[in-house]
């Protein structure tokens, strides 16, 4: 572990970056998932087929390919646009942080779409009828009946989606984000101790996953606090 001297702070800041990517992509993942689910459940055929294309494409494509496509694709487009105004510009890109965040959020969002769709259709129709009978509006039904009931069903797979997200953050190092794998690579070239450097990355990721797993367990307990258990 002597080789680690002087690198701890780099790993610390890199893991902060990973946490930032995770939080931002979690936010977008939920949005994409909810949009996809509502499109899939809507009566509009165009929305349904768009959502189907979305899930089929992103669930069948390797994550690394989506990350590369997002980063290099946006770079080509932005460079072309920039050159319209100033032909001396050689290369414009969106920051790897955002390209990567959006890319992994899109991928995991396609899985979340299916989860949310399943959870919304798993809500007991009786509860919704009861809400109608009590004169609740559609919005009220959504927030007081549908969502509290659906998230109980959605939480266990949602925990897995969060695990996928944290693990996919590792992919963003290939488009040059200064995160843990990137630090490990630099550290290896100075210290010549690749195993030590990459194992530390693995251990930090294991820590993140453990926190997420525990948080999901607590959330599940909280969501199910009203549910009566079999005696």
């Amino acid at each position: 572990m002597d080789a680690m001297t002087g690198w701890w702070d780099d790993y610390f800041w890199a893991s902060i970056t990973v946490a930032e990517v995770f939080v931002c992509s979690l936010f977008f993942m939920v949005i994409f998932g909810l949009l996809g689910a509502s499109a899939k459940l809507s009566s509009n055929a165009v929305a349904r087929s768009l959502a189907n294309t979305y899930t089929v494409f992103f669930r069948g494509t390797p994550e690394i390919l989506v990350v590369l496509l997002m980063y290099f694709g946006s770079a080509v487009t932005l460079t072309a646009i920039a050159q319209l105004f100033d032909s001396s510009i050689r290369f414009v890109d969106i920051p790897p942080f955002w390209a990567g965040t959006i890319a992994i959020a899109l991928v995991v969002g396609s899985y979340a779409t299916e989860t949310f769709r399943g959870a919304f259709s798993g809500v007991n129709p009786g509860s919704i009828e009861a809400a109608r009978a009590l004169g609740m509006s559609n919005t009220q039904t959504l927030f007081y009946v549908r969502i509290p009931e659906m998230w109980r069903l959605a939480l266990p797979p949602f925990g897995n989606h969060m695990l996928s997200l944290i693990k996919d953050t590792a992919l963003i190092s290939i488009i040059g984000l200064n995160e843990m794998l990137f630090v490990a690579k630099q550290a290896t070239s100075t210290t010549g101790k690749p195993f030590t450097m990459y194992i530390v990355v693995g251990v930090i990721y294991l820590g993140f996953s453990t926190i997420i797993t525990l948080a999901t367990m607590l959330l599940e307990r909280f969501a199910n606090r009203h549910v009566r258990r079999a005696p």
């Binding site: 996919d168 101790k193 195993f195 990459y198 990355v201 693995g202 294991l206 996953s209």
Partner: peptide
């Protein structure tokens, strides 16, 4: 627990770049 909690990319790097140490 270990394999579910770490990215495959990290595992690949540990094996490919790490083990020759």
């Amino acid at each position: 627990y270990i394999f579910r909690g770490t990215p495959i990319l990290v595992q690949i790097f540990i094996i490919y770049y790490g083990l020759p140490q």
